[in-house]
Amino acid sequence: MTTPAGQTETGGSTPIGEEALRAAKVLHPDENFMPRPTKRRVLTVANQKGGVGKTTSTVNLAAGLALHGVKTLVIDLDPQGNASTAVDVDHRSGTPSVYEMLIGEVSLVDAAQVSSQSENLLCVPATIDLAGAEIELVSMQSRESRLKEALSAEALDQLGVDYVFIDCPPSLGLLTVNALVAAHEVLIPIQCEYYALEGLGQLLSNIELVQKHLNRTLSVSTILLTMYDGRTKLADQVTQEVKNHFGEVVLKTIIPRSVKVSEAPGYGQTVLAFDPGSRGAMSYLDAARELAERGVEGKQE
């Protein structure tokens, strides 16, 4: 008996069919375009603790917005260059990159590349040259504002982007300070694990210092819970603790622990490109939509 794709003869959906439908929602978003923000949003994705999903969240949120009609720019400020790898842009030594942009040798427009995964997704890559940038920046004039100067309203207007995501290194050094000075908002990924809140106080203190002395418009607008494992009580406890502490800035969407999310960077892809029907891809897509909807509801600063 002939049945629609993804349906069994009894009318229920098969797992393969459900995944195909989810993939179609990601790859053919004609009816699911996300709203553009009321005004351009510049978000720094920061947490000095490593392995919490900073880069993964940066590239997948950016890809989710880009695939659904919102022009988005990723600034890879981590010398490891993982965000550049994930969105598939060239970041070999000698490529115009965020390093040359910070020291004033190239402009934002010259350094930005279009990702192969979406014409709406751009990236300023990080090359190995960025590794020594913090030492060079120390002696430079306006060393904390180099990125802000490069990301001027005029330069961003030339690219026509609605969102800028700045992926920080896992430290609280001068590169992260530059990211905080250049942004309007901070997005903090927090993993649903035992040491989730360790070191978070230090990050929040640094954000307050930047607010006080360098960027009065900065605010922690978004908390994203990552690596959620529903099999453990601990994950629920951490989730509840974070929601109690941060309230409405915590996104309702929680990113599950996912093999596909972990595998995708090894193939030079976001999880939305690598396996668009996976739970991880759909979770990041939902988080991107939630972020986009907040952008038109006036919830950001």
Rank of each mutant, 00 (worst) to 15 (best):
I188C: 10
T217V: 12
V220G: 05
L200R: 09
N215A: 03
M227N: 13
G247P: 02
N215V: 01
S205P: 02
V242H: 00
K243F: 12
L197A: 09
G199W: 03
H213L: 04
A183P: 00
I190L: 10
T222W: 10
N215K: 05
Q211D: 02
L209T: 08
L224T: 01
N244K: 13
I188S: 07
L203A: 03
Q240F: 11
Y228W: 10
R231Q: 12
L203Y: 01
T222Y: 03
T217S: 15
H213A: 07
P189R: 13
K233A: 15
A179P: 02
L234H: 04
V238N: 01
T239S: 15
A196F: 06
G199Y: 08
E185W: 04
H184D: 14
T222A: 13
D236K: 14
E193L: 02
I188V: 12
Y194R: 04
L204F: 07
N215I: 01
Q240N: 14
R231F: 06
V238G: 02
K212P: 04
S221M: 04
Q202I: 09
V242K: 00
E185H: 12
G201I: 01
Y195I: 15
T239A: 15
R231I: 06
N215D: 00
G230A: 15
L200S: 12
V210S: 00
N206A: 15
N215T: 03
S221P: 04
L200F: 06
I223T: 10
G201E: 09
I190V: 08
L203H: 06
E193F: 00
Y194E: 11
V220E: 04
L214Q: 06
E198Q: 09
L218F: 03
E208T: 03
G247A: 11
T222C: 14
G247D: 00
A182R: 01
M227R: 14
I188W: 05
E185Y: 07
I223R: 06
E241W: 13
L214E: 02
L225Q: 12
S205K: 12
K243A: 04
L224I: 11
I207A: 06
L218V: 06
Q202V: 11
E241N: 14
G230S: 14
D229F: 11
L180V: 00
T232W: 08
Q211W: 01
G230F: 13
L203K: 07
E208M: 02
V181N: 05
R216V: 15
F246Y: 08
T226P: 07
Q240C: 11
E198I: 10
S221F: 06
Y195W: 11
N244H: 09
D236I: 05
E185P: 08
L224E: 06
R216H: 13
G230L: 12
I190A: 04
H184M: 09
D229K: 11
Q237E: 13
T217L: 12
C192A: 14
R231H: 10
Y228M: 07
F246C: 08
A182K: 01
K233R: 15
K233Q: 15
Q202L: 14
K233I: 11
R216Y: 11
L218Y: 04
A196Q: 02
